[in-house]
């Protein structure tokens, strides 16, 4: 029962952030958006799949909206959401369909290569995609009205809460048990009657949609999307976020780990050598995990 408190906790936290001033509002939108991409990485990790190309879905969600604004001149939120879900879902289906043939590091390298193909297209076909400058992301409108920061925060919180609820359902469902089975022993799970390929395909699509929606939110919050969204380092951060989330026992772990990672990254920027701070923290997390695990 306690798991169902997750969506409520997320919405409560977002509400609190709303009253915390403009900076917290912005940070909350960013973190909630980014956490959806972490959810995608986390979901695939449940199957033992390390997706180093989840950033491609993240980029597609934002680019879908940016391109629609650039060419069709509409900032309608519903259109953008549909486009983001469609683009990211199709990408997830592609990733799942080709990923079914590979496992382990081959899967990681395949997903990385797929995302680098998208990255290459985004960077090099600059007349269409804006190249390395990226694209402008408009303020989204719902029924012609700008939703503003408050609306964006509400949207981010609702989406994160919805995915937390989905995570809760997933954890209890047949699919969740199959995921654990695939991670431990794929052959045996398959022999017990589960259609491994179908499970991986569907979870790829879901993970990709989550990441795509996340990219859309983050793009809105910064009014900008660039090919860096699809670069493998971006995906790497999300995988790290997903790993931290999988160390955490709660359904809202993906939001907690996204908040942790982004907070540390933000904090690190006040130093001249931010990478040292983030790297050192990751090391500390890993060391703590190893100590806990040994017991």
């Amino acid at each position: 029962m306690r798991g169902w408190l997750s969506p409520i906790a997320i919405i409560t936290a977002a509400t609190a952030a709303y009253f915390g001033g403009p900076f917290l509002r912005f940070a909350a939108v960013y973190i909630l958006g980014w956490s959806l991409a972490v959810f995608g990485a986390w979901l695939l990790l449940r199957y033992g799949l390390v997706n180093f190309g989840i950033g491609a879905s993240y980029a597609l969600g934002a680019y879908a909206a940016g391109l629609i604004y650039k060419y069709l001149h509409t900032a309608d939120l519903a259109v953008h959401l549909l486009a983001a879900v469609g683009a990211a879902g199709a990408w997830g289906a592609l990733n799942g369909a080709v990923g079914i043939k590979t496992r382990g590091i081959y899967y990681s390298l395949l997903s990385l290569s797929l995302s680098m193909v998208l990255y290459g297209v985004l960077v090099k076909f600059y007349t269409v995609t804006g190249g390395s400058d990226g694209l402008y992301m408009p303020d989204p409108r719902l029924l012609g009205v700008r939703i503003g920061t408050a609306g964006l925060l509400a949207l981010a919180a609702l989406l994160a809460a919805a995915w937390a609820a989905l995570g809760e359902v997933f954890g209890r469902s047949y699919a969740g048990h199959v995921a654990a089975g695939i991670k431990i022993n794929e052959l045996r799970t398959s022999a017990l009657g589960a259609d491994v390929g179908r499970h991986i395909l569907i979870s790829s699509v879901l993970a990709s949609i989550a990441a795509g929606l996340g990219g859309l939110i983050v793009g809105y919050s910064t009014s900008h999307v660039s090919p860096d969204f699809a670069y493998w380092v971006t995906s790497g951060k999300m995988v790290v976020g997903g790993l931290i989330a999988s160390f955490l026992p709660w359904t809202w772990g993906f939001v907690a780990s996204a908040a942790l990672y982004q907070a540390v990254e933000l904090y690190s920027l006040q130093f001249a050598y931010p990478e040292l701070v983030v790297g050192g923290l990751l090391l500390a997390i890993l060391a703590a995990w190893r100590l806990y695990y040994r017991r």
Binding site: Y273, P274, E275, L276, V277, G279, G280, L282, L283, L286
Partner: peptide, 8 residues
Amino acid sequence: ALLLIGEG
């Protein structure tokens, strides 16, 4: 983590 620390 090592990659990040190296960059730093």
